[in-house]
Computed example of a mutant assay.
Amino acid sequence: MNRWATTALVASQLLLSNAVFAHGPTPQKIDESVVIQAPIEAVWEKVSDFNAIADWHPSVESSVPTDEQGTRVLAFKDKGTITESLDELDADRHYLGYRLLEEDIDVFPVSFYSVSVELTESDAGTEMLWQGRFYRADTGNFPPEHYSDEAAVEAMTDFAQDGMNALKAELEGQK
């Protein structure tokens, strides 16, 4: 084999090996928190009512329960709807966990998520921890920018922070 053919063969094998090692999305996460100057029970009363998120989250227009098992359809202002399912509600721990059942990547650029919200007492009132684990909207190897990992992290972070800050303002009497 001549030198040119050998170089071409090696180059094609390198290109093919990169394709073999390409992979889909990796799990992303957010861990957001805020301290609300209010008793834990007052915060829990708001957060634990799974279908009342529209009462305090500025992005949510409505939350409609679809069954008695804790499934809701959230309608977003000027965006669309998604369906979520309540997985766990623990009043003793002040903890709730839920997940995405039906996506709308125009609402959130994610293909799946699970979220937990946990409250703990602090010297200043109540610490609210909002954690999310999720995958970007486009699960292919080369997603467009608006469906990338970065877009998913930004959307989930903004949603958590906007909700927590609105709840903080309401419960601290700043709304």
Rank of each mutant, 00 (worst) to 15 (best):
P27M: 15
K77T: 13
A91R: 11
A8V: 00
E68H: 13
D138M: 00
E154V: 04
F21Q: 01
D149K: 00
A137W: 03
A75L: 10
T26Y: 15
E84M: 01
Q37A: 15
F159H: 13
Q69N: 09
L167H: 07
A91P: 08
A166P: 03
T81Y: 14
D78Q: 14
M1L: 11
L86P: 08
E103C: 02
V34F: 13
T157V: 07
G125K: 14
E61Q: 03
K175E: 08
Q69Y: 01
V107E: 04
T139G: 13
Y98F: 15
D106G: 07
N165Y: 14
A124G: 04
F21I: 01
P25N: 09
S12V: 07
F134L: 06
S122K: 13
W56R: 00
N18C: 10
D78F: 05
E88L: 14
V115S: 14
W4T: 06
M128S: 10
A124R: 15
D31I: 04
P25G: 08
I82D: 06
L96I: 02
L100Y: 12
Q13K: 04
E41M: 11
E145G: 05
V73H: 09
D67W: 10
S48G: 12
W44R: 05
E103G: 10
G24C: 05
E68L: 14
T126K: 00
N2C: 00
D55N: 11
R93Y: 10
E61W: 03
S148K: 11
V115E: 11
Q37L: 09
A38M: 02
M1R: 11
V43C: 05
V73N: 11
D162A: 10
G80C: 08
L167A: 07
D78S: 03
Q174Y: 08
A124W: 05
I40K: 04
D90L: 01
G173Q: 08
K46T: 08
K168C: 01
